[in-house]
Write a protein that binds this DNA or RNA. Structure first.
Lengths: 317, 317
DNA sequence: TGAGAAAATGTACGCGCGTACATAAATCGG
DNA sequence: CCGATTTATGTACGCGCGTACATTTTCTCA
């Protein structure tokens, strides 16, 4: 076809105000042009307010737009059984990225069905050992290791750890990294210095009461995310712990919140935004290659980085 | 049709693993089942990290899911001209909710085109005077009025105001509410005590230098959002202003961040989440009613609420 | 000027559903 | 048992695009 004709057609189209119907086109090609982003159902929590989801979604959104795809938000509902396959069969999405997946039997089953049918998908920030799922993750073992090691180097020896639910592989990673750093220094993580929350600030505030009971045995706390770290600090403050007896604090995520506390919170920077971008890019790349490609699952792991702020400075040493 | 037959069909469908193709169905009915959410393009900003967008999107998402619609995220791109109509013509969306619209000529033109074609849409948190656009807004005049009045009641007289860009009607609303409260107390807002930012924390930090020059004439600051208020506080601190000379601070949005600063930040609570829910509900209600309805544009205004925290307590009086 | 290639134009069909209508079968009432 | 009604089954078409292929026109170069 000649370029000139092409131009003439385009002009005519514009003159007639013609807009191709994405609907009809998608129907004809049986591709929706949408990339699904699955969000977990967390009751009473405004999902996006969490730094984690916000950043990842921004990353996905940016890359998807760049590659000409639209983003369809898929909200997990608590009642109906987890059925990712449905979205594919209904042709609402061509591929999907799953956020906040948990390592429980139901989730695993749903993901296996996806894999068995050869449907393209990718998990972010969650690893299933031994399963052939594509994943984009950050190295939380490394991140936790560095954080705790930093505390040890600063002179802290009696280190407590507040973790998130163990159904998330990244919680387990953190535990592992934390123990590794302690072990290298000849220390062990005592059971009574392990606290558990659900990544919310309020769970940190709650845990503060527990922490308070053993505060004499603690001179630093590593928390699995910033919000719990902040909750802990606020809880301790509310319980009347004097400033000078505060343990050093180390958070995780390097969220905006870590920069507005007093003292500012040291944290582990996780490239959530980039993880979103990469996940979108990879998943779409494989989609465009088509079914002809071998379609090996990929596992991408991004490094984390320490951001040292006042909360882990030598307050007591 | 008999109920029994219905059941038999459904069973057969399940047995055959039949899933109706949403794609084909949408094509046949020429409705996409998607509700578009338009997000403004803000370079280098990770959009969702902003409390404002996060909350509203959560609200929309919740309601949409409830009503059986999916959410398609539409990212505004800087290069191509603003063309909301396109999404409708392409049948990617049935209706849309526009966030972060600005009062500039291009935006206005784009919105007018939507209105002229009778396409259903709704703005959140932005008012266009004299235009027949459906809007869901919060009463920012009232919110600002209450905030400043509170400061005045606390004994503060010399009140500075840090506003956002005036292209947003809600910035203008805040100015109006602020001036109203001052006027009632026989005060005026002096030009040199007005600062302007872009709602980011860094713009607050920047403005702190300006504020510092007139700090002797200021005993309280009202900021148009929390992030700028926090930026101002941090900026003043960085510039070495001693704690006891700090002005009282009042923020806006009641974001999570307002609860983690020291002192905690008084703020105006805006029901963003509910605004999202209402916008989705209204826009879908009108959609279901079909074109038969008179389709009068609606304007819904939700009240705001003060949340008093330490930053506006009598620090100096 | 004519043969061959390139470009333009024309025609047909399927994607899988909703919708409408025609026909056949089952059910009901007297 | 028959007519009237409800229910079941069958048939056809269109939504607007992509795709394939047949046909006609234009262009190119000898």
């Amino acid at each position: 076809m000649k370029e000139e004709t092409r131009q003439r057609v385009m002009e005519a189209a514009k003159k007639l105000n013609y807009v191709p119907s994405a609907l009809a086109r998608n129907f004809a090609t049986s591709r929706s042009g949408n990339i699904g982003v699955v969000l977990p159902y967390v009751p009473k929590v405004h999902m996006f307010s969490s730094f984690f989801f916000s950043e990842i979604l921004s990353g996905i959104g940016n890359k998807a737009r760049e590659l000409g795809y639209d983003i369809l938000l898929l909200f997990q509902t608590p009642d109906e059984s987890m059925d990712y396959v449905r979205w594919f069969h209904a042709h609402k999405i061509d591929t999907c990225i799953i956020l906040g997946a948990k390592d429980d039997p139901e989730e695993l089953l749903a993901l296996r069905r996806l894999a068995e049918e050869g449907l393209p998908f990718c998990l972010i920030n969650q690893h299933f050992e031994g399963e052939p799922f594509s994943e984009v993750d950050a190295d939380h073992v490394q991140g936790s290791y560095m954080a705790v090691r930093h505390l040890i180097e600063r002179g802290y020896r009696r280190i407590a750890f507040m973790n998130g639910p163990l159904t998330y592989s990244n919680s387990r990673d953190r535990l592992q990294g934390c123990e590794k750093a302690l072990a290298e220094a000849g220390l062990v993580l005592k059971e009574e210095l392990i606290f558990r929350g659900n990544f919310s600030r309020s769970s940190g505030i709650t845990a503060a009461s527990e922490l308070m009971k053993v505060i004499d045995q603690v001179d630093a706390v590593f928390a699995a995310n910033d919000r719990m770290a902040i909750g802990l600090m606020q809880g301790l403050r509310d319980l009347g712990l004097p400033e000078e007896r505060f343990p050093a604090m180390f958070g995780y995520d390097n969220s905006d919140a870590s920069q507005v506390t007093t003292p500012e919170l040291s944290s582990v920077k996780v490239p959530f935004y980039e993880m979103g971008e990469i996940a979108a890019a990879e998943v779409l790349k494989r989609l465009e290659q088509g079914a002809g490609a071998p379609d090996q699952p990929f596992r991408i792991m991004l490094p984390t980085e320490l951001v040292i702020r006042a909360s882990s400075q030598n307050l007591r040493f």
